[in-house]
Design a protein around this nucleic acid. Structure first.
Lengths: 123, 123, 123, 123
DNA sequence: GTGGTCTAGACCACA
DNA sequence: GTGGTCTAGACCACA
């Protein structure tokens, strides 16, 4: 877990993002325990309030559940996975529409994206 | 020009976004005059400073040039168009990578996006 | 004579700059007549007040003299030439000092400048 | 930090210039904290908005990064240093060209600059 | 406490 | 009239 203090996004948001990624990619699994608020705060040299805020947000979004006195645990994320997949699709569709508006038709765009993906893959 | 005061993004950023879109889509053309700072502020019932900030940002990004005592005018945007096209491609590539990480391969994704585009098109 | 309305500098200043250059380089000579305020304003589609302001400034700096009812004429510019030469030297000295402050010594700088001049010359 | 209220340049620009110099010369180092917006404003008897504007500009130019609730900190400036070095070279080249246009050849100029540097050095 | 955004209103340079 | 800068002071998000 790494916080980038130069990032303009608030620290609690960076924590939320990183745990969401760990959970959605399967790096953390159902019922696995997250670090305690206090420990994570020390590890990141952040304020415990900030970590608590991140955990509260993750709970609100259905990524973890907390058990008093025991800690915070990863939820089953089938639902979140499907939701994120649909979000990704909607975001791509929006970008395709914007490209069309500035004169890049979907075939041309498809070609350019394919090229870019191959370049990345070749690195 | 419509500002959403419930939007969490600051007003000046909304103004910037909307003019960028108008300019990139060709709705406003090279050397066309934008409303004066004071007029736009009145129209949006916002403060002239807020509009000024938006215009300064648009100038910095190369979308308009200002002439003291005359007003603000749209720049030639060939460069900005190409830059935005490349940004769109990179954003799509990043989304494809994220999809792969959560277990949606690029063929499946392509199919789902195509479906979504067709649905939208049918609206 | 060309005014760049996209330039952030005021129009009157651009006029001043261009006539100073024409006069210092000898493109306009001692006692040569400048266009009338009215004509130049028309040619540049600028406000006559703006042109008048430029001429007043040029007179103040000793580049032209005006004769009522006859027009504006180029001064002898031996003095201005020497002054501008000294200014150029002072500006270069200041840049050399700044370079030293950021760790570029004068020999290294001399080499880099020589290279840059040759590149320009080769264009 | 000294502001010259008689200077025609705006206060925020003077603040930007001075911090750029402090950072580029190494007087302030990577990750060092700048004064808070409010403190610097008090020290300069300027308005917090004016200081904020200077800091925003310094952030945009890559000289500092800001962390909400914590403060503003100096960036790593390798890139800025190189960029400024190149700017200095280009400015000197432009001055050499201007000198040539008004009849001072580069050898003569070189001699005059060398003299001037030695005089300064002797102060 | 600290930065970010915004309103209200002033004054200046420029055309 | 038009843009640019600035002061005074408020309120919010974040740590």
């Amino acid at each position: 877990m790494l916080i980038d203090y130069k990032d303009s996004r608030p620290i609690y948001e960076q924590i939320v993002e990183q745990y969401k990624k760990l959970i959605l990619t399967g790096a953390m699994v159902h019922d696995e325990r997250l670090p305690s608020v206090r420990n994570l705060a020390m590890e990141l040299s952040a304020n415990p309030n900030t970590v608590q805020r991140a955990y509260t947000e993750l709970e609100r979004q259905g990524f973890l559940y907390s058990v008093k006195g025991r800690g915070n645990f990863v939820c089953n994320t089938d639902f979140q996975l499907k939701a994120r997949r649909d979000e990704i699709i909607q975001e791509i569709v929006a970008l395709i529409k914007e490209a069309a508006e500035i004169g890049v038709d979907s075939e041309e765009l498809h070609g350019l994206v394919t090229q870019a993906v191959q370049k990345e893959g070749a690195l």
